[in-house]
Design a binder for these strands. Structure first.
Length: 205
DNA sequence: TGCCAGGCCCTCTTTAGGGCCTT
């Protein structure tokens, strides 16, 4: 049974290439259909948090002024994640920050990223949209607290991952959904879900 | 004070443009 590390960053902007840094990270471990452990911390990005992002996340410059350094928190987070596959909603975003901050402390990612946004587009194509908050509401996932805070969003993404796996098991009568199958679905285009699952089944026979 | 990106994916496409999604 694969253990997944579901992560979520709050940051000062959209791209580390433009100087944005993380202000908060949460990691939620998911195993055997449930959340088994959690890690969360604010960190001092050492750059100004724009007012619109302070309003969005509720994380202010005052809150992070005396928070631990990004490097120290990233070391702890990387240790907590270990070699588990990482999952995030719109993983391209979190992957940029994860890789950029690990590089600053001379660490390198070992594992793949799985994207719950891409999986949701393939598995729930008729959802009103594929924002995390909309999917939580549409799929009636548990309320995890204030959205746009790292732990609440990481937990929501964890429940979404479990719901996506559950939907695949139900729709295709599978006894389990492997990480390998999730990666295969993620790598295919939107209209190839049935073909992808069918090919995976045939390969396993 | 507070600027900023980029991969995915659809379509009136593929010699491109633009919306979605993350903060």
């Amino acid at each position: 049974m694969t253990t997944y590390a579901v992560i979520d960053f709050e940051t000062t902007g959209l791209s580390p290439g433009c100087g944005a840094r993380p202000t908060e990270i949460a990691v939620v471990l998911v195993s055997n259909g449930t959340i088994t452990d959690r890690y969360q911390s604010l960190m001092n990005p050492e750059v100004y948090i724009p007012s619109d992002i302070q309003a969005l996340t509720g994380i202010t410059n005052e809150m992070v002024r005396n928070a631990p350094s990004v490097g120290g928190i990233m070391k702890q987070a990387a240790r907590f994640v270990g070699n588990h596959p990482i999952v995030a909603h719109n993983a391209a975003f979190d992957k940029k920050f994860w890789d950029a901050e690990l590089q600053r402390i001379q660490l390198h990612r070992q594992q793949t990223f799985t994207c719950s946004l891409l999986l949701s587009r393939r598995i729930f194509p008729d959802a009103p949209n594929h924002k995390l908050g909309t999917l939580v509401h549409t799929l009636r996932l548990p309320n995890t607290g204030r959205s746009h805070r790292a732990l609440a969003d990481a937990e929501s993404t964890a429940y979404l991952l479990l719901r996506l796996k559950q939907e695949l098991m139900h729709r295709f009568r599978l006894t389990d959904v492997s990480h390998e199958l999730l990666l295969a679905i993620q790598g295919k285009s939107r209209n190839q879900l049935e073909t992808c699952v069918s090919n995976y089944r045939d390969a396993k026979k």
